[in-house]
């Protein structure tokens, strides 16, 4: 999963409080009371009396605030906030992007929510996540566990696993489409030589989603490994030693000590995978285009089709807001459940 800014959104804001609580650096209210450059400024001017409140610290920095904030505020406003607000309006209209939009209130939402096909897009997206997450998590965790030890050529193995992470989704999808080519692909040739069945992979409605999952897990394995490695390296060594002294076997140490202490990393991987998984598009678009027979049509794929194939921008905007609400609800649910199983060392 390529860490797109959006993908970090929930996880980051989820982490925000913890980061602040742990590091103790984010307590801005407290910091403001300390003397910063602006306060030193005030002191140097000496005699001038400053009344606390409105006229005081509030607007004194206005010029500097504008200088430092405008470069980021203008693009964010123009290319994120305004389109976002506009998207709410578009979702309430019927619009083919050519003639003038007509206001239809909640008709788009009503139609989408009562259309059984909408559920299918979400189910396909869910099937992708259900197949993908265990693969990358168990694979990434195992690799991190092994490659955390001192081994010959350790950095080579790490780099090999990581290389697909930096390869773009389109390339990964194309390469896997070729590897899984039913007629001339390497995978089916090997399976045939072994006397095993040769599935139709992305050309077969039953095998299309597994093909996409396989390619996606291959790409993201290294990302999960890096996150889990960082988690492993943050576990203090004496905890492991204490468990060893108490006579814990290797597996017990992992199951009862290491793995629970990795729960923040696990949490991060699960949150990010769900957010990214719900937005899956690139690899589906390239590998199957949603087919065969709509078997792999995912939510974002449908948003794309509605806008650029069927000229139904209003429906597309409404579907994107439904997706947003689902992402938000699932992420909020995870944050609420976080306390039960995530240990904070």
């Amino acid at each position: 999963m390529t860490p797109t800014p959006a993908s970090f959104a929930a996880a980051r804001s989820a982490d925000a409080n913890d980061v602040i609580a742990v590091s103790g650096q984010g307590d801005s209210a407290q910091r403001d009371r300390h003397s910063g450059p602006e306060d030193t400024d005030r002191r140097s001017r000496g005699a001038r009396r400053m009344r606390p409140g409105r006229r005081g610290s509030g607007w004194r920095n206005a010029g500097w605030v504008l200088v430092f904030l405008l470069p980021s505020a203008v693009p964010l406003l123009l290319f994120t906030v305004i389109p976002m607000l506009a998207s709410i309006w578009v979702s309430l209209t019927k619009w083919n992007l050519i003639s003038a939009p007509t206001f239809v209130a909640f008709a788009n939402y009503r139609r989408l929510l009562t259309d059984p096909a909408t559920l299918d897009y979400f189910l396909h997206t869910g099937a992708y996540i259900v197949g993908y997450l265990p693969l990358v998590y168990i694979g990434g965790l195992s690799l991190a566990y092994v490659l955390d030890k001192k081994l010959v050529a350790r950095s080579f193995f790490r780099a090999a696993v990581f290389l697909p992470v930096i390869t773009s989704w389109v390339v990964v999808a194309l390469v896997w489409q070729w590897l899984l080519n039913p007629a001339h692909g390497v995978v089916n040739t090997v399976l045939g030589a072994l006397g095993l069945g040769q599935p139709g992979w992305w050309t077969d409605p039953d095998w299309a989603m597994p093909s996409i999952i396989l390619a996606s897990a291959w790409k993201d394995l290294g990302f999960v490994m890096v996150i889990m490695l960082a988690g492993l390296q943050s576990i203090p060594g004496d905890v492991q030693e204490a468990a060893t002294v108490d006579g814990a076997t290797g597996w017990q140490r992992f199951r009862r000590v290491t793995w629970p202490m990795l729960s923040p990393s696990t949490f991060f991987v699960v949150v990010i995978s769900l957010i990214n998984g719900l937005q899956v598009f690139d690899q589906v678009f390239v590998m199957t285009g949603g087919g065969p027979q709509g078997a792999t049509q995912v939510v974002v794929g449908q948003i794309y089709n509605l806008t650029f194939r069927y000229g139904r921008a209003g429906d597309a905007a409404a579907l994107s807001w439904i997706l947003f609400v689902v992402i938000l609800a699932i992420t909020a649910g995870q944050l609420a459940g976080q306390r039960r199983w995530v240990t904070h060392a």
Binding site: A6, A9, A10, P83, M84, F281, V300, T307, A313, A317
Partner: peptide
């Protein structure tokens, strides 16, 4: 408040923005 508004833009996935951004 302003910082909160910045963080809020992170919550909006690109998919929500694509259609109106294209129109813009």
């Amino acid at each position: 408040v302003v910082f909160g508004a910045y963080l809020a833009t992170l919550m909006v996935p690109l998919q929500v923005l694509v259609v109106p951004l294209f129109i813009e």
